[in-house]
Amino acid sequence: MSGRELWADGRLRAAWAARDWPTLIRRFRALAGISQQAFGELVGMDQGYVSRLERGHARVTSEDVVARFKEGLHVPIELGGVEPRRALHWDPSSELRDRIAHAHAVGRADLRTADWIGRVLVEHRRAEDEVGGHALWPIVRSQLDSVSQLIPHAAGDAADRLMLLAAEHAHWLSWVAWQEGQRGAALAWIDLAHGWAIDGGHTDMSSWTQRVRAYYSLDHGDPVRALRTAEAARYAGQRPLSPAAESVAVHQAAMAAAACAERDLARRLADEAHELALQTPDAGERPGWLYWLDPARARLQLADAAYACHAWADAAAGFRESLTALEGFPKDHAYYRARLEDAQRRV
């Protein structure tokens, strides 16, 4: 595994952002398959000092040592400015808004950097369930800064690609902010993501951001607003949605309809969402942020809608059938496991 590939790992990046040297050394060595001696050779340190750092018996206090880590471990450029923070800045900055708004201009953008940032964002999505979004927040926020600095130097399709990447980052930041109880910041980020998706002509992403807003409304106890927003997500643009994007919008409408006590409508929508999801069983056929919508997840969503409609036997059967597919996703597994247990008690 090359140094660049190592740095796609979410836990390694989180350790660098937090200056958590014991975790960083252990994780890097595990991914690279190297000894403490070999690690020391990369960063210009003897094995004994590396051992003390890894066990937490020594501290890094010199920026010269940090520079050795940065150079020897080939830390990606978008992580170079990340500093540990006691308090995270949750809201979007005005500088970011100004930098990215209406910034298309003929120039030369480094799309290789953009492609790399897009790849590691995929890894962050997958790592968030294990590492936690709070730990990854400063990294993703730093990556968004890198993307926004590329946009003024791009035009045409390249600019549109960068707008989508910016929208994906803003969506991730919104989702984590919501989970952390930062609701105002979450809404600000999702609004930015929606605007950037529209500016870039990305119908699937603009639909997804509306779907997320519908989820927020439902989670906040406003099912009527959630239903209206989810229905709007289904018709987000002039171009038709991909089956996967339409599926998640329809599923969110089903969950909102169930909360409005419109259970017949909810079950019809849930069945429709399931059928749409099954049209794209391969991850390569779905938008990147819907990597998780495989047939097992689609079945779990159908069961979740049955649960919301108080169809306990159908819900329990669906959860039992597909729960094993979530063994690598502890938070999602715990959520659906709790649903299964509750449904079984109610049958």
Rank of each mutant, 00 (worst) to 15 (best):
H169C: 10
L162V: 02
V248N: 01
G195F: 08
R263Q: 12
A256C: 04
A167C: 07
A170S: 15
A253F: 08
H171Q: 14
H220W: 06
L150P: 05
Q210K: 12
L241S: 10
V176P: 00
A185H: 04
H171D: 10
L173K: 01
A261I: 00
Q252T: 08
D160F: 00
G201P: 06
H153A: 13
S247W: 12
A253Y: 03
Q149V: 10
A166P: 00
D199E: 15
V250S: 07
W196Q: 11
A158K: 12
Q149K: 11
T229K: 02
A256H: 13
L265R: 15
Q210N: 06
Y216L: 06
I198G: 08
Y215C: 01
G195L: 10
L265S: 13
A197V: 11
A159F: 02
G195P: 04
A257Q: 06
H251I: 05
W175T: 04
A158V: 13
I198Y: 05
L173C: 04
R263T: 15
H171T: 09
A266Q: 11
L162I: 06
G201D: 09
C260L: 10
S242C: 05
A193N: 10
A159M: 03
H220N: 13
L173P: 00
L218I: 05
A167T: 04
A166H: 09
A226G: 07
R263M: 08
R225M: 03
L227G: 07
C260D: 11
Q210Y: 01
I190C: 10
I151H: 08
H153R: 13
T229L: 13
G200M: 06
S207I: 10
G200I: 04
R183G: 00
S206I: 04
A270T: 05
R268D: 14
E168V: 01
G200N: 05
I151D: 08
S247G: 11
W208Q: 07
L218W: 06
H153K: 11
R211G: 08
L241T: 14
A155V: 12
I151M: 13
E246V: 01
P152M: 12
V224N: 01
W172V: 00
A158S: 13
A167N: 08
L162S: 03
V224L: 10
W175I: 01
